[in-house]
Computed example of a mutant assay.
Amino acid sequence: MLVLIHKECGGPALDESPVGEVCAIPVSQFPFTCFTCLEDILDESEVRLTEDLGI
């Protein structure tokens, strides 16, 4: 499962989709609110993509 992580709080930046993956966010979608800490994410430098293997 791919997850966008907010670098500042370390939590998921988006809620999981029904298929268990978070889709890429087009640059036009910034800013958006972090799902975990509710801070505004202004650009892609504030998030990182990680893969959760669910093990």
Rank of each mutant, 00 (worst) to 15 (best):
P26R: 05
C23V: 05
A24Y: 13
R48T: 12
M1A: 10
L53H: 10
L2V: 10
E8A: 12
S45D: 13
F32L: 15
R48K: 15
L53F: 04
E39N: 12
M1G: 08
C23L: 07
D15M: 14
I25T: 06
L38R: 10
I25Y: 00
V19G: 04
P12L: 01
C23S: 12
T33Y: 10
L53D: 11
E16W: 01
E44R: 14
L42A: 09
L14D: 01
E44K: 13
S28Y: 03
P26M: 07
A24L: 15
C9D: 04
L38W: 01
D40H: 07
E21V: 09
D43C: 11
C37K: 12
G20Y: 00
M1F: 02
I5H: 11
L4G: 06
C34G: 06
D43E: 09
Q29P: 01
P26K: 05
I41D: 03
E8M: 03
I41K: 04
P31D: 04
E21G: 05
L49E: 09
T36P: 06
D15L: 15
F30E: 06
G20A: 00
L42Y: 14
D15E: 14
E39T: 13
A13F: 11
E8R: 11
F30R: 07
P31C: 06
V3R: 12
V27T: 12
E39A: 13
A13D: 12
C23Y: 07
K7D: 08
G54P: 01
C9M: 03
D15G: 14
P18L: 12
V19D: 12
G20R: 00
A13W: 09
P26T: 00
I41V: 11
D43G: 13
